[in-house]
Design a protein around this nucleic acid. Structure first.
Length: 379
RNA sequence: GGAGGGGUAGCGAAGUGGCUAAACGCGGUUGACUGUAAAUCAACUCCCUACGGGUUCGGCAGUUCGAAUCUGCCCCCCUCCA
């Protein structure tokens, strides 16, 4: 009985009758979240500039952390000693860890891939570190996240078919090894679909992972330089053969139009550094489109950032103040603007859930895209 | 009154005969950012009718083929001594 509550489950509540958009509910070992969901990224066991209390206030739900970064610092043993990442960082919501697979991409010039795993040259001190797919799982078990990812290779775009195929097949072998190594019953494990922009590879990978029976399926290798059309195709190819009764997670995607396109195609989970990173760099997503708070026109603009927004930043502060905080390089500006951008995307998916419930997701998407004047990048 | 030191682009500050429209930092403007080596990075920042032209390094007058850099005078600032 108690076990049942402590399981990881995904329930499909409703599928929009005009597209593949779906409303779901995940029970993550007793913690319940609704999907589609946007998950803020807190690589080093912190969403930069935010305290866990801020995450609760913006209704964050799941947040991310990163296996590679926590492995290097403070180290998996410290996380284990702390009693797991939740206690370590004092966040009691669900936490998902990326496996380190993205670092195979982002730190490409300081790693070497072999069948066995990946050798990294630490970006902190240059030391040689080896991570196998099993290691990634062990580390994630020590970190104690609620949802772990298989160790994969996120490949750049464009890559040659031959390489993409070999890499995807290796990622599949790694997924299998990781799954064999995984022991924690209180941690879900997702497989990651790769295969570049190639329909047959994506399809093959999705089917093979499904056969291995993961708790959920991620779509990886997107937003790595490809154009939007290609990216949406990658999603289509990947999702087509994934089981309906498991969550689908589109990794690393957070531009507004991308999230909407993803939801339309049946994606349940998104994460992205974009909202927090661009916030720190002065770009805010508002109901009137994207603004850059550092511009001089905001120096004496005493109106709120977005009067349709319910976040702490918009309820209490003016653009002039944010402009000042940005120019003065004050941390509060980073905090308030990160809160805003995250809340903006979280409200976006909240609205999407409501729309799906009413079978009007496509209208919702259209409303958003016409009302908000996003450029082709979608933010 | 005397003795030193100094005046360089919005600010600070290099440069002390040609490679200098003048390093670098700040400030300013613009742009980038999608499973975070990112409170980061890039471009521009004397003027213009701008793949070229014009005018500069307190002021004026010189030396020189050539000066922000050397000489003279003047103006201003700082420190110390009276």
């Amino acid at each position: 009985m108690g076990d049942k509550l402590k399981n990881f489950t995904y329930s499909l509540i409703h599928e929009d009758c005009h597209c593949h958009a779906r409303l779901g509910q995940m029970n993550i070992f007793g913690k319940v979240v609704e999907t589609p969901i946007f998950m803020p990224v807190g690589t080093q066991a912190t969403v930069k500039f935010l305290a866990p209390e801020d995450l609760r206030n913006i209704k964050a739900g799941i947040i991310l952390a990163n296996t590679y970064h926590l492995w290097l610092r403070p180290g998996a043993d410290i996380l284990e000693k702390a009693g797991g990442i939740h206690r370590f960082m004092n966040y009691d919501g669900p936490i998902l860890t990326d496996s380190g697979g993205f670092q195979v991409f982002s730190l490409a010039d300081r790693r070497k891939i072999s069948e066995e795993g990946v050798t990294f040259r630490s970006h902190l001190d240059g030391s040689r570190l080896f991570m196998s797919p099993e290691d990634s799982i062990y580390i994630q078990e020590k970190i104690g996240s609620d949802i772990a990812m298989s160790f994969d290779e996120c490949i750049p775009y464009p890559s040659e078919y031959k390489y993409v195929k070999e890499s995807m097949e290796r990622t599949l072998r790694w997924a299998k090894r990781g799954k064999m190594a995984h022991t924690r019953q209180d941690q879900a494990l997702f497989g990651i679909v790769q295969g570049g922009e190639f329909a047959d590879l994506r399809e093959y990978c999705a089917k093979a992972l499904t056969e291995m029976d993961f708790d959920g399926y991620s779509i990886g290798g997107t937003s790595v330089g490809e154009d939007k059309k290609t990216m949406y195709q990658m999603i289509d190819y990947s999702i087509k053969d994934l089981p309906k009764d498991k969550p689908r997670y589109l990794m690393g995607v957070g531009a507004v139009n991308d999230i909407l396109e993803g939801i339309e195609r049946g994606v349940d989970m998104f994460d992205c550094v974009l909202p927090t990173r661009i916030a720190r760099h002065g770009t805010l997503m508002t109901s009137k489109g994207r603004i850059n708070i550092k511009k001089q026109i905001y120096k004496d603009d005493f109106s709120p950032l977005d009067n349709e927004c319910d976040c702490e930043c918009c309820r209490n502060y003016t653009k002039a103040y944010l402009n000042h905080l940005f120019r003065a390089n004050e941390g509060l500006g980073n905090r308030l603007m990160s809160i805003h951008n995250l809340r903006f995307l979280i409200r976006l998916v909240e609205g999407a859930r409501e729309a799906i419930r009413q079978d009007r997701f496509l209208e919702y998407k259209k409303e958003i895209l016409t009302k908000y004047q996003f450029d082709e990048r979608g933010f």
